[in-house]
């Protein structure tokens, strides 16, 4: 039995706004995306994967910039390649740094608003620029902008028509820590408002901070989808590292070793680190063992519940 989680997306499709069905995309002999089934709904979803995993290709197919070689992509129930009216509800931030250098930030965002059929494009542009903290630099030419400022201008252009779906391909590239934190807060806020926010990244810590759900890709395939903890739980036969803070670590460790779900134990003066193949069973046994050994347990935490560990695991499985 393999420990890899099922490469399908278990999201309830009833609230899905962006759906990939048996989606494949190849360029000549090179398969960039292979038979991906996944869906995205309200909230922030992180699209994770190492460089070359197929994230950008998947986003471009979903957005209608590329035609699928097989399968289907749909936004709000429609194929964006055929029904361009759907773009009224979609904002897209491409991975590339390029912008229209001959325009000012304000003109770029106003132009995007006007083409997206926003009635008062000027006001909408001002709001979007203020949202990404570019209000003061709005009249400067994009040519003179730093990479981070260009990213924010692109985000403003994607937001200006108040879209229901935002597809963001590495939107934090080139931003400084303050800008990054602000953008993450913005995406979390937009997701909280019920919009579908898809953010691709290979920086796990960023996704960990903003996404409630992740879709992981490896080698063009969907490796996993779900909440971080659900993904971790799905890796049921992979030993998990659990830390127990207690006043009697040696006694408690000796007692817990009696359970056949404990693979190894490391004891330190403040507690125990246990590698277990069944975190659920261990969780139940901790309380019993603590009572039996008269130990006081002050904290129990999963040491490897981060996206980093999940992702490392997924890559190794592939």
């Amino acid at each position: 039995m393999t420990g890899a989680p099922r490469a399908t997306d278990a999201r309830d499709v009833s609230d899905a706004t962006v759906v990939a069905t048996d989606l494949s995309k190849w360029f000549g002999q090179k398969v960039a995306v292979s038979e991906v089934n996944c869906s995205f709904g309200p909230g922030v979803t992180g699209l994770l994967g190492p460089n070359g995993a197929g994230k950008t290709t998947l986003l471009r197919v979903l957005a209608g910039l590329l035609s699928p070689s097989a399968g289907k992509a749909a936004i709000l129930g429609r194929n964006p390649k055929r029904h361009h009216s759907v773009y009224r509800h979609v904002g897209f931030v491409p991975e590339d740094e390029a912008v229209y250098n001959h325009m000012s930030a304000r003109r770029f965002v106003e132009w995007s608003a006007a083409l997206s059929k926003v009635e008062d494009a000027k006001s909408a542009a001002q709001r979007a620029l203020d949202t990404v903290h570019l209000g003061e630099d709005a009249d400067r030419a994009l040519l003179g902008f730093s990479k981070g400022m260009r990213q924010r201008a692109k985000v403003a252009a994607a937001l200006v028509h108040d879209p229901q779906v935002l597809i963001l391909d590495e939107p934090l590239n080139g931003t400084d820590p303050v800008q990054r934190a602000r953008l993450i807060d913005l995406f979390v806020q937009l997701g909280g408002e019920g919009r579908t926010i898809i953010v691709s990244s290979h920086v796990l810590a960023e996704v960990d901070r903003m996404a409630t759900r992740v879709v992981a890709m490896v080698n063009g395939r969907l490796a996993a989808a779900g909440s971080v903890s659900a993904l971790r739980d799905a890796m049921s036969d992979t030993p998990r590292l659990i830390r127990i803070d207690t006043d009697r670590p040696r006694r408690l460790a000796r007692r817990l070793l009696a359970g056949n779900w404990v693979e190894s134990v490391r004891v330190d003066p403040a507690g125990i680190e246990i590698r277990t193949s069944d975190a659920g069973a261990l969780g139940h046994d901790i309380a019993v063992a603590a009572r039996e050994t008269d130990s006081v347990v002050t904290a129990v935490s999963a040491e490897d519940d981060s996206l980093e560990s999940v992702f490392r695991y997924l890559v190794e499985q592939r």
Partner: peptide, 14 residues
């Protein structure tokens, strides 16, 4: 220059 998405991903007929 990879700016085509700004033009194409709009609710405008081709």
């Amino acid at each position: 220059s990879h700016t085509l998405p700004f033009l194409l991903l709009k609710p405008v007929s081709r």
